[in-house]
Computed example of a mutant assay.
Amino acid sequence: MSHDPPRPAGRLLLTPQDKDAPARVRRLRRLGLGERPEPAFDAFADHLARVAAAPYSMVNFIDERQQFFAGLHTPDGARGARLMAGVDGSELEPGRYMARDHGFCPHVVVRRKALVLEDVCDYPRFAGNPVVDEFGVRSYLGAPLLDRSGIALGTICVVDIEPRPWGRAGLETIKAMAAELAGQLERRDEVHGI
């Protein structure tokens, strides 16, 4: 059993090692995913935000270096102009891309399991993530998009700048919606004969 090394105070907690990244990248490229936004993914993110009553939601594909929000919902409807305001009120512009060591989706992809963080500050492992200080993220709910071979292509997730009691209902909802989108991706795969 592996354990995370101790984290020096004030240092970035490293994203877990992702041994499946090369296979994921090949699969994403074959499917034509992870390089450009798609209206269907934006619509899915909008629907996910409504269902979860969350201000932000994403359909996120992850490669070896970065995350790409192929689907994005923000409260003001901006699609890539501004993901969130900084905690000091300044506007940040990560757009549809985010470094792989930011956020919680890379953890979901490596674990291949949903992750519920009702208040990220309650979890020392996650409280030091850059999105907490830079964007003010306080709660996260995400699930992996598993293809038929078991590769986690990415995630769907919702986030809030306030703590949220997602509960069992939130967990079941995010898992069901991830399975729904994974099914759509599989049908897309079949149509293209990949």
Results as ranks from 00 to 15, higher is better:
A127Q: 05
L14A: 12
A85V: 06
G32V: 06
V116G: 03
R188H: 12
D63Q: 07
P55M: 07
L153M: 06
D189N: 08
V110K: 05
G142P: 03
V158Y: 08
P37W: 00
E93P: 07
G34F: 07
F61T: 00
R112Q: 15
C121K: 08
T155F: 07
E118I: 14
L48D: 13
E64L: 04
L115N: 04
L117K: 05
T15F: 00
L181P: 00
V131E: 14
Y140W: 02
K175T: 12
R26G: 07
A21D: 09
A179V: 01
R187V: 08
I161W: 01
F41A: 15
S139P: 00
L33E: 12
R138M: 08
R82Q: 14
G71H: 04
P37N: 04
R79N: 06
E118D: 11
S149R: 03
V110T: 09
D42E: 04
E172W: 03
G167P: 01
D133I: 08
I174V: 15
V158K: 13
S149W: 00
D76H: 07
A81T: 08
G193M: 03
D20M: 01
L171H: 15
H47V: 10
H102F: 13
R168G: 08
L13N: 12
G128V: 04
L92W: 05
V132A: 14
F135Q: 13
V25H: 08
A70G: 05
A85E: 14
M58K: 04
D160A: 10
R188W: 10
A52T: 01
A182V: 00
L145E: 03
G95Q: 04
G32I: 04
G80R: 03
D20W: 00
L92N: 11
R188S: 09
S2E: 14
F61N: 01
A178M: 03
H102Q: 10
R112P: 12
A49P: 02
N129S: 09
R138H: 06
V116L: 02
E134V: 09
P163H: 08
E162T: 02
V159P: 01
H47N: 10
L48K: 14
I174K: 10
F104G: 12
V51Y: 08
I156S: 02
A152Y: 00
A21H: 05
